[in-house]
Design a binder for these strands. Structure first.
Lengths: 230, 230
DNA sequence: TCAAAAGTGTTCCTGGTACACCCATGC
DNA sequence: GCATGGGTGTACCAGGAACACTTTTGA
């Protein structure tokens, strides 16, 4: 039974830019290969149609899980993308979302409308469907703003990490190098890091001390925001 | 002829939170009274349906002009609002926009789907249709962030204004009072103000000097952003 | 002469920035 | 012993914050 409306309606979709950090590889984004038209076979952000009985926030979480297996991820809305020709085959409007995940936490796996799901480095993206390249660039912009007010590094790193790891994350996100001494001073001053009695293993140099974030202080920081001007 | 689709589609609309500043009255928002269902007779943000052959950015400008007479206004997107029950009568998703205008520049006039168009102070809003109250609060939040990076005062004030006028704008937006001497020092240091050989008239006190912004320097500031931490 | 707001500088202190050398480890 | 990154402290400077009195004008 087709659905009938007095006036035409654009298709409404949601898309998720899920970012992760690969040690030694920089920022990564999770892509799927489309199994269906339009843009069949091309790489794209996970996403899909909004159903009538779910909010757009719920829709993007569902689509992400369906297509990549990533579940229980809290996504933040970026904005709507509504250029007339963004989908050459029909009028569609999408709402972009983004989030940060630890690569180590998630083994991604293609499913439903995706024939593959893979992490790609932001610096070497394949040709993407629709305006997904623009969505990713808005996500990156948002992430850069976020560094000032949220402890983003900890969403991206494994539980235990060295201060150098953390600095590399910030350098990858901001796209510039930072002063080691000043970075450590500032990040330790936030008071959300706990020094562990543990060092890196199997490195061909002096092993770095490992840290983790203090869960309570970290939650407070997330909620109240921080002021971290690197 | 009704339009038919294989899957159901939410209605897609756009809404504009147009903010102005009234001397002595604080921040104002432009509202219309709805002439049509749903929410007929209730006050709401100007807005309406997105057509198939226009971008969402174009749609919001068109709707604003149609309903209030405000034309050639550059609106900035906030985000999409897509809770399932935001419109109790049907599934609809809206994209919120906002902009700043000089009250003095615009005589608003209701038209098409609006039976009235009026400025309301943000502090005394009537009961609003749908989730428009939330859209306004997101707009205000965005405006506060904007004070750091854009010379917002000048979008809201008449061409000639005193430094006290400008300070009142920032106080209204930020919701706190500012130190007069520090404010003047900082705002003059931006180098986008031109001192005029002209004073206020008809005030029952010492008249304040008037300023205007230097057009060239102002445009540069808009483009490159400023750093203005009041 | 009173009320009301205009206009004006200085001091203190915090916090950012720049900067170089020794240390520990694995090979 | 050498290459590699780990780890550490100081000095300078800019800019923010706090703060009070005199001036002008109209009523």
């Amino acid at each position: 039974v087709p659905y009938r409306y007095t006036y035409p309606r654009p298709v409404l979709t949601v898309d998720a830019a899920v970012l992760g950090y690969l040690m030694g590889g920089g920022l990564m984004v999770l892509l799927i290969q489309r199994k269906l038209a339009p843009e069949r076979g091309r790489w794209a952000l996970p996403g899909g149609h909004v159903r009538m009985n779910e909010s757009i926030d719920d829709a993007v979480g569902r689509e992400l899980e369906e297509e990549t297996g990533l579940a229980n991820v809290k996504l933040e809305q970026l904005q709507a993308f509504g250029a007339v020709k963004r989908d050459p085959t029909r009028r569609s409007v999408t709402v972009g979302y983004f989030t940060l995940v630890k690569l180590s936490d998630h083994r991604v796996q293609a499913a439903t409308d995706a024939s593959a799901a893979e992490w790609y480095p932001l610096t070497r993206l394949p040709e993407l469907a629709f305006d997904h390249c623009e969505i990713i660039s808005v996500a990156l912009q948002r992430l850069r703003e976020r560094t000032r007010t949220q402890p983003i590094g900890f969403a991206l790193l494994p539980t235990k990490f060295s201060l150098t790891d953390l600095q590399r994350v910030y350098e990858a996100v901001l796209g510039r190098s930072l002063d080691k001494r000043n970075f450590r001073k500032k990040v330790l001053a936030l008071g959300i890091l706990q020094e562990l009695q543990e060092l890196e293993r199997n490195v061909p140099r002096r092993a770095a001390r490992l840290y983790r974030f203090k869960p309570a202080a970290y939650r407070t920081a997330i909620q109240n925001g921080i002021y971290f001007d690197v």
